[in-house]
Simulated scan of single mutants.
Amino acid sequence: MHPQVDEYFVKLKQWHDELQELRSLLLDTELVEEYKWRAPCYTLDGKNVVILASFKEACMISFFKGTLLKDPKGLLQKPGENTQAARVVRFSSVAEVLKQKSSIKKLIQEAIAVEKSGEKVAKTTEAEPVPEELHAAFQQHPALEKAFEALTPGRQRAYLMHFAAAKQSKTRTARIEACTERILDGKGLHDCTCGLSKRMPGCDGSHKSLA
């Protein structure tokens, strides 16, 4: 049991009992309890296997390589449209956790076996489409295209998804204009620009203290 996880549960105001039930299942395995990303995380030989999370609408147990797990009861869900590896099971009551307890234990054991096997999730290499508005911006501002191409693939993909998510062309153009300086500075969409973040290179909201 990790002291920071103990503290996490002391301060937890929502889904306390549900997550404690899930925690007890995880503590009954060979996984090591750690505290990462402000949440209880369970590892094997330093590799992330499972993490617990509390949100407004539900709590969940998330499997880092969930897409590799067998799921005969269809419990695992894709947390986001573009998520490749992780899969989650959501709960909104202790009764739900207890009802699926046996299945969750099997998923945890399978996740451990997958990690021991060294199997990796095959990530898609399909590139995100570049919006026409961004092509136009590149033509008008060659330095922007050069700076964009210098970004890591992950940062490029985040920007492309952000731009493409806008339904109207004028909104896509506005988003591109708003992000131009960040791109020219070599920053990703969620990178810190104020220099105050304690979670570099990501932004942790410290810039709000400047207001």
Rank of each mutant, 00 (worst) to 15 (best):
Q84M: 13
Q139N: 12
K187H: 04
E149W: 03
C192D: 04
E128I: 11
K198L: 15
K116R: 15
G195Q: 05
G195C: 05
G74H: 06
K56D: 11
A137F: 05
H162S: 13
E133W: 09
E181I: 10
A143W: 00
A158R: 09
P131G: 06
H2E: 14
F55H: 15
R87S: 13
N48M: 02
E18F: 02
A165S: 15
A58T: 12
S54L: 04
Q84D: 06
T29A: 08
D185I: 01
I112K: 09
S197I: 06
F64N: 00
T171V: 15
K13P: 07
A164L: 05
Q20Y: 03
K120Q: 15
E133V: 10
G46F: 00
E128Y: 12
L134N: 08
I104W: 01
S102N: 10
I51G: 08
P153N: 07
A136M: 02
E128F: 14
I108N: 11
L107Q: 07
T180M: 11
Y8P: 08
E7A: 15
A166S: 14
T125P: 06
A211C: 02
E149Y: 06
G118C: 12
I176L: 09
V121E: 05
L69V: 14
D6H: 13
Q109F: 09
H16D: 14
D17P: 03
K146D: 11
K208P: 08
C59S: 13
L196H: 11
K36I: 00
V130K: 04
R172G: 12
L76C: 08
K73N: 13
K198T: 15
L144H: 09
D71T: 12
K116A: 06
P3K: 06
I176H: 02
L25A: 03
A113F: 00
E30V: 08
D185E: 14
C192G: 07
K106A: 14
R175C: 14
K123I: 08
T171F: 07
D204P: 13
S102I: 06
H141K: 14
A85L: 07
Y42E: 00
L44K: 04
F63H: 02
F163W: 01
V88M: 10
C194D: 04
E57G: 10
